[in-house]
Simulated assay, not measured.
Amino acid sequence: MALIPLIRLIALSVVLGFAVIVLGLSAALTSTTETFLGGYFEFAALAIATACLTLITLPIMIALEFLRSGSAFTSMIVVELSWLSILWVLWLATAAEGAQAGQFTFVSGCGYIDSTVEGACRQTAAIQAFSFLNWLILLAYTTLILVLTIIAASRKHAGVWKSSVGNAPFFTQGKGPAAQPTSAPAGSTADGGYTTQPYTAQPVTQHTTGGTMGGTGPASVQAGTVHV
């Protein structure tokens, strides 16, 4: 497998694994708060929604790239970059909301005597951490693909935005306009010099209007011989 498709597979697989962890932690935290507080944290609900979107869409993108390489709509670079950018924004929002909720809810940090409160604090910190990791991974991957695609487009690769990551010509030189041959003037070379033509002697014919002694009529000289 080529380097960039391998990076794509590893990055999306790691994000999927972290999304499963975040989904489990968020569900457990929501169950705890619903039981003891009669409500839920907004960041936990956002984490559940973001994790579900990730778990629904990323496996489809990975599978279609293997089953229909380069032909699936979701494999197009422009579509993949757009959707993954939306996902990393959601993960960033989840991490930021989790950090804010943890700061105001668990002021002194984790270390409570009550096991329920301590568990909720630990779950909040874990959700925040894995959400930040997913944000960083998706941000780094989308930035890498965006830069490589812009470079490929600048090398005259037509349609690179609509190709898949596996088929994109990231590291090949594009085909520029064909160079037109320059014509040199007759008797000259392309570097400005001049050529010499071989000399061939041609017969010379000369006509005179006079005659010789006692004769009339034209006299002709051809190739050095006089005919009277």
Score class of each variant (00 low, 15 high):
Ala51Ile: 03
Phe130Gln: 02
Thr57Asp: 11
Gly215Gln: 15
Val160Arg: 01
Gly224Leu: 00
Ile48Leu: 11
Gly39Leu: 14
Met1Trp: 12
Gly39Glu: 15
Thr225Lys: 13
Thr212Arg: 15
Leu148Arg: 03
Phe66Tyr: 09
Ala45Cys: 07
Val228Arg: 11
Ile56Ala: 14
Val165His: 00
Trp88His: 14
Phe73Asn: 12
Thr33Gln: 15
Gln128Gly: 06
His157Glu: 02
Trp161His: 07
Phe73Lys: 12
Tyr40Thr: 15
Ala2Trp: 11
Glu65Gly: 06
Leu81Ala: 04
Gly159Glu: 01
Gly174Trp: 04
Phe171Cys: 03
Gln100Ala: 14
Ala51Asn: 00
Phe106Thr: 00
Val22Gln: 02
Ile10Tyr: 11
Thr189Asn: 03
Pro185Val: 03
Ala72Cys: 02
Gly214Phe: 05
Ala126Trp: 05
Leu16Arg: 04
Ala2Tyr: 12
Thr124Ser: 03
Gly102Arg: 00
Thr116Trp: 08
Ile77Trp: 01
Gly211Cys: 08
Ser82Phe: 12
Pro5Ile: 01
Ala168Leu: 03
Thr124Arg: 01
Phe106Cys: 01
Ile62Gln: 09
Trp161Asp: 08
Val160Asn: 03
Trp83Ile: 08
Asp191Pro: 00
Thr57Glu: 13
Thr208Ala: 11
Leu90His: 08
Ala28Arg: 08
Val20Tyr: 10
Ala45Arg: 13
Trp161Ala: 13
